[in-house]
Design a protein around this nucleic acid. Structure first.
Length: 587
DNA sequence: CTAGGGTTAG
């Protein structure tokens, strides 16, 4: 019995709120199709290989190639290299396929130089490289970000009379996208599609080339172009598959075009393509980022209903989603549930939940989880420590933060610059300026590469402790250290000056940062306006509001509250309300 | 023998 109900009609009939979840009205029907992934057992392949090596007379190299190739497919490249050496040791002659497999191993492990060396071997043994050889070399060059060389090689082999195969094109497109040059890939796609007068070289991309390019283009934020490519592909009669849809949907999700993403998702299911765990993860992740945790968990439940098993990623995404919404108990529930359902947690699961507890200021629980993970032999990472340190300082527990920092050594985790920044910032904000300065000087003395973020912590700490003079000297010396103040640095200094009532200097610094090409943001404006407000300089505030409007800087909650304060002093300023987009929009 | 999609902190 075939269900003819199209997904779209099911959607329109049952969906009241446009929720994606209401779309799955049928439980999955065909879960048990033969889904045996042709899993190659490496051990079997390797042991057959050794048996074969000992055979007399020697086996044909083609048989050995099959086994080496099987291992290569599993990406155990070290094993492949080892097997190759065994072939040489027993004095068997590798043929060009053996050598192509070896060459591809080197290229796939960012060792293109050795790849070229193997090509030398191909010549030396009297063979010739073929298009497969060159495709691997192009991949190798791209893997090392030598995309220019890859394109040169690509053109060179065409000049030599080789015809790039669909794999060659796909490899080049993927390589360019991998190096963040999707636009170059797109240009290539367009130009090669015209053929330049040689119809035999005209590029007619297949599904995989399109899917690769769509994904790459979307990843660089050019979602519209990605969508265009998708439509172009369909226009050429190439039916998109799950991967092609996933790439586009992911791009649309990242670009915030949720409605459009949903539209393509529905279209996909209408085409009879079943979403898998990867696509579900993309959608659940997007919903979580948008704060739509309920819809996310709805999708989660429905994927289970449909027989699509959530994996470790799914759980981690959703646990983090709950944490971001401060629904720590729901997060906890899922954290427990995942093990009950037979999914082993990983460090990320712990990091995510620990972060949730830190954000909810429940540090005793966060620390308890930390101890639990250590006991269960999950190795805490740098992220674990940085998260916990941030949390401990936030609740003012300097003592435990110090102790935890000491523990990093025991766990063989090396603090990075952000660990130190967390520490210095934490000390500053908890009245331990001395300790912060001490650490600062130690790091400076040991030649640790301190970034502007570190100086931001220290400058803020000094300003807050009323040591504006010291902060000013440090600030003036930044360029001497080769550091460029950011908008945050300037804002901290402006804040410090305002706090000391040095409004003229604060205003001058504001003007100076603009002159230096550093654009003030909404926080800078708020800071300076607050200063003017405190010293009853309403006209100066108005000036700043006008400037904000001119530059299309959107006001935030603090801006609005400042303007309300201003109005409560003198309603004559109400005419400036219209300058604030948020106000004027609301009519 | 060669090409495509997924998570976590600050």
């Amino acid at each position: 019995m075939i269900r003819t109900t199209s997904a779209a009609s099911a959607f329109s009939r049952t969906d009241q709120r446009g929720k994606l979840s209401s779309f799955f009205i049928h439980p999955s029907k065909s879960k048990h199709i033969t889904e045996y992934p042709t899993e190659i057992n490496i051990n079997d392949a390797v042991s057959s290989f050794y048996q074969m090596l000992q055979m007399q007379p020697s086996p044909p190299i083609s048989s050995l190639n099959k086994l080496i190739g099987a291992v290569a497919k599993t990406r155990n490249y070290q094993d492949v290299i080892f097997m190759y050496h065994r072939v040489i040791e027993v004095d068997l002659l590798p043929d060009y396929i053996t050598l192509n497999i070896l060459l591809n191993c080197y290229c796939s492990t960012k060792n293109v130089a050795l790849g070229f060396a193997v090509m030398g071997g191909i010549f030396k043994r009297g063979y010739s490289p073929n298009i497969v050889t060159f495709t691997s070399l192009i991949k190798g060059l791209c893997m090392e970000d030598k995309t220019d060389d890859a394109i040169v090689l690509f053109n060179k082999i065409i000049g030599m009379g080789f015809h790039p195969s669909m794999w060659t094109w796909g490899t080049l497109i993927k390589g360019l996208c991998r190096s963040g040059k999707a636009e170059v890939a797109l240009r290539l796609h367009k130009e090669a599609g015209k053929g330049n007068g040689r119809s035999d070289l005209r590029f007619k991309p297949n599904l995989i080339c399109y899917a690769t390019l769509i994904h790459g283009i979307c990843k660089e934020g050019l979602v519209d172009k990605g969508k265009q490519l998708f439509l172009e592909m369909k226009g050429r009669g190439i039916m998109p598959d799950l991967v092609a849809y996933s790439g586009l949907i992911h791009g649309l999700c990242e670009g915030g075009e949720w409605e459009e993403a949903k539209r393509f998702f529905i279209e996909m299911v209408d085409q009879g393509i079943r979403p898998n765990v990867i696509l579900f993860n993309i959608l659940i992740h997007t919903l979580c980022k948008e704060g739509k945790t309920n819809e996310a968990s709805g999708l989660f439940n429905l994927m289970i209903q449909r027989g699509e098993e959530p994996n470790l990623f799914t759980y981690n995404i959703l646990i983090n989603g709950f944490c971001l919404q401060n629904r720590i108990d729901d997060a906890r529930e899922l954290f427990v549930l995942m093990e009950d359902r037979g999914h082993k947690r990983d460090v990320v699961s712990y990091n995510v939940l620990i972060n949730g507890y830190c954000k909810s200021q429940r540090l005793e629980e966060a620390m308890r989880l930390f101890k639990e993970m250590v006991r269960k032999e999950y190795k805490p990472t740098l992220i674990t420590f940085n998260t916990l340190l941030t949390g401990l300082f936030q609740v003012g527990n300097v003592e435990d933060a110090r102790a935890l920092f000491q523990q990093m050594k025991i766990h063989r985790v090396t603090p990075d610059s952000s660990s130190y920044n967390i520490l210095m910032d934490g000390f500053c904000k908890n009245n331990c300026l001395e300790e912060a300065m001490e650490l600062f000087h130690t790091l400076e003395g040991s030649g640790f590469d301190l970034g502007i973020e570190t100086y931001n912590c220290i400058l803020d700490g000094l300003c807050r402790a009323g040591k504006l003079d010291i902060a000013s000297v440090l600030f003036e010396n930044l360029s001497q250290k080769g550091l460029v103040p950011t908008v945050v640095t300037y804002t901290i200094m402006i804040h410090g000056l305002c706090k000391d009532g040095k409004m003229e200097e604060a205003n001058n610094l504001f003007l100076k940062m603009e002159k230096e090409g550093c654009a003030p943001n909404v926080v800078t404006f708020n800071t300076l306006m607050q200063g003017f407000y405190n010293y009853n300089e309403a006209p100066k505030m108005v000036e700043l509001i006008q400037k904000m409007a001119e530059r299309n800087i959107l006001p935030d909650a603090s801006t609005v509250s400042l303007v309300i304060d201003l109005l409560s002093k003198d309603m004559n300023y109400s005419k400036y309300m219209s300058l604030i987009p948020k106000f004027s929009n609301q009519g």
